[in-house]
Design a protein around this nucleic acid. Structure first.
Lengths: 197, 197
DNA sequence: GCTTGGGTATACAGATCAGTTTACACTGTC
DNA sequence: GACAGTGTAAACTGATCTGTATACCCAAGC
């Protein structure tokens, strides 16, 4: 393996471990030593790739954002073309991703919570992911030609984020059942309104 | 003022300040020194009333739980008798409580997030408040004789908690608008199902 | 008026954590 | 085979945080 390939591979590996460590233990409460021990790398190497803990957290949030955008939304867009089905599939796929570790919630919101008023750059980075989710559902509702797509999109996004959150509280993904069903009901209602008009 | 009265008053005062400090800054990231400085008390006094930071956090969570149960739910129950109106009023009142500081989210969920896998007692205490919210909405839906009250109650609770959460992200309480509206739509639908049966 | 409980101020111990530095080992390239 | 780049291991600095201990102050109650 070439030097630069090795470097990016190592970097990815560190981010992957840090991702799990921060996700499970929180950003403040998890020390860089934990990440080091878990990744099996020395402190010097860690600080070579990531000049500060802040940089590492930033990379972890990027990784999470990509997971949401690529693994969730892009997969859903490829799987079917009907916006209504896409929205419901979003609930199913998010639930599946969360299945193995339902206690973790949303890392973006976790960052937004922990860094609010303390480190605005990282808080904003975390919030950005929540905005992406909101926007995606609004966009899907517009493509589906529902009545009041902005309102409906935000309603579904609220159900979606609420289900992720409550999965953390309940320790399982059962909150996705009523949330997904509610999304369906709201879409039916919005479709009826359009048909009547 | 008698000694014991003074003592409980002082304790309440400390809890009130600690409540704001932890709410704004997080439990891990906020030191007892911050609480001391903000309350204007010495470290010795703090540790006389609360033998450890854990005890202080526990008292703060109790305070928050009481605020939710008394200031929110009991007030709503007194204000009107129709369960449907009570549920909608819940959204309005929660929004009003959050109005001055919409960035804070739910303290119970904050505790559940921060202490998950690190301090189970406090994590459970935080989660308990979320369960209370869930149960209250399910109970209200049962009193309202809606179809599938358990499902509807959990759907409304998901919207409610999601709105609190997204208010934090958006920095204002605007997410309550679509969430409240969605709760109304879902209740209409459930009432129609009952009427048809 | 003296004691006693409650208070402040502050220094301190012990732990933890971010980040730096030093010393040393391995490996691909010329 | 020398060398530069990359890695580990580990000691160390300085800051921060929880919790304790010491010394002193004030006001209520007998």
């Amino acid at each position: 393996m070439k030097r630069d390939e090795q470097a990016t591979a190592k970097k990815r590996e560190i981010v992957q471990h840090a991702f799990d460590n921060f996700y499970d233990g929180g950003f403040h409460a998890t020390g860089v030593d934990t990440v080091m021990a878990d990744s099996g790398i020395s402190k010097r190497t860690l600080y070579k790739y990531f000049p500060s803990k802040e940089d590492l957290i930033d990379a972890v949030l990027d990784h999470y954002g990509e997971q949401i955008e690529k693994t969730l939304f892009e997969t859903v867009l490829r799987s079917c073309s009907d916006p209504r089905e896409q929205i419901l599939k979003c609930f199913d796929l998010r639930r599946q991703i969360l299945q193995d570790s339902p206690l973790r919630g949303c890392l973006g919101l976790k960052a937004a919570q922990e860094f609010a008023g303390r480190h605005e750059a990282l808080a904003t980075h975390g919030k950005h992911i929540a905005f992406v989710v909101d926007d995606w559902f609004v966009d899907a509702c517009q493509r589906g030609r529902f009545a009041q797509p902005e309102v409906l999109g935000k309603q579904i996004a609220t159900l979606f984020q609420g289900a992720v959150l409550l999965s953390q509280v309940y320790g399982d993904t059962s909150p996705f059942d009523p949330a997904r069903q509610a999304a369906g009901t709201l879409m039916n209602e919005a479709a009826t309104l359009v048909a009547e008009a």
